[in-house]
Design a protein around this nucleic acid. Structure first.
Lengths: 141, 141
DNA sequence: TTTCCTCTTTGTAATGGTTACAAGTTATTA
DNA sequence: TAATAACTTGTAACCATTACAAAGAGGAAA
């Protein structure tokens, strides 16, 4: 998980101004462990920054993604989720509750001999299924 | 890659009627190795079946996905791609040309001790980068 | 064949996440 | 302070996908 300072410094380094709005988005994301969507970030920050526009959030997140400071997750079919943790790890999405979990996985141990002539820039691992919490709820019913 | 017969039989078994339109979609997908989108399937089949509607293609593909006879790929941010090959394998998307390649990978060898209490139903691996063809084109320029 | 019922197809409209754009605002530099 | 560039905002456009209703097609039973 990236700290607010790391994100801010990196933006400065890329000549991207650290505005109040951007700082709020960075702060929210770097403190979050739930892989929030734009909508979630928006409704959370709207209280503190009433003038905030969704476009600003999209802009900020897109900048950060381009700079590889955050990751956009496409594990959810209809909405992007964002993750301030860019160290390679897996994501598990529960089909019942929709929650997205992190899990450690040694992606670089994959045998990828078939991709010898490919330049690999990103390795993504998504698992889907039912989380323990939902499994126990099903058993109760 | 699923044969047309396998797909047809499985649909019959699930009491889904094998209409002319559905057979065409199944046939196209089972012969395809390029992970086509709905748009591609539509424009290819429209010539043969002029009355064909996009909704029918969505319906058919959704049925097949629910029955786990095909896989919907979300490696592309803005459009779903479909794959008649359901044996677990990885997908590599070239960021330059957009082409999606298959590659073999032993996903079950992953160490997933952190997910001991999770019910895992699907394992997805996406790699992104530049394919050999585009790499050599860049070198020429 | 005829009737009935159900499933399917089709076109259009609606949905919803995301992006484009223009106008106004803010920051930076000189 | 003025000038320039970057940023924010709201609205409108975009586009893949889904919802829906009406028309069409197929199978079962008589």
């Amino acid at each position: 998980m990236k700290t607010l300072k790391e994100l801010s410094d990196e933006l400065k380094r890329n000549n991207i101004r650290l505005t109040h709005q951007r700082l709020k988005v960075l702060e929210y994301l770097s403190n979050s462990k739930t892989h929030p969507t734009v909508e979630e970030i928006y409704s959370a920050l709207k209280k503190e920054v009433p003038s905030l526009s969704k476009t600003t959030i999209y802009n900020t997140l897109n900048y950060l993604s381009e700079l590889n400071l955050i990751k956009a997750l496409t594990i959810d079919e209809n909405e992007a989720h964002f993750d301030a943790d860019t160290h390679t790890h897996g994501h598990f999405k529960c089909s019942a509750c929709g929650k997205i979990y992190d899990f450690d996985i040694n992606i670089d141990s994959f045998d990828t001999e078939h991709l010898n002539n490919f330049e690999i820039n990103e390795k993504i691992v998504y698992f889907k299924g039912i989380c323990p919490r939902c499994l126990s709820n099903i058993n109760i019913e």
